Simulated scan of single mutants.
Amino acid sequence: MKVADILRVKGGTLFTVSPDQSLADALKTMAERDIGSLVVMDHGDLIGMLTFREVIVSIVANGGSVGSSTVRGVMDDHPLTCTPDTEIDEVRRMMLERHARYMPVLTQRTLMGVISFYDVARAVVETQDFENRMLKAYIRDWPAGEEQTAPQTTL
Rank of each mutant, 00 (worst) to 15 (best):
V124K: 10
T107G: 05
L38K: 03
R109Q: 12
L23N: 03
R33T: 07
G145Q: 13
K28Q: 12
T86H: 05
V66S: 13
V74E: 02
M112K: 10
P143Q: 05
G64C: 06
Y138T: 12
M41D: 02
L38W: 07
E131G: 02
D89L: 07
V55L: 02
H78E: 15
E97V: 08
V125Q: 13
A121R: 14
I59S: 03
G64V: 05
H43C: 08
G36D: 02
Q148R: 15
T81M: 11
A24N: 12
R33H: 13
D85L: 08
M30C: 11
M30N: 13
I88C: 01
D129I: 13
G67L: 09
M95N: 03
L111V: 15
R122C: 12
R140P: 05
V39Q: 02
D89I: 07
T83A: 13
T107N: 10
M41S: 01
L135M: 15
D42Y: 10
F52Q: 09
K28H: 10
L96N: 15
N62W: 05
P104T: 00
L111A: 04
M134H: 10
I56K: 08
I35A: 01
Y118Q: 09
G67N: 07
M94I: 06
E146D: 12
A100P: 00
P19C: 02
S68I: 10
A121P: 00
M103T: 02
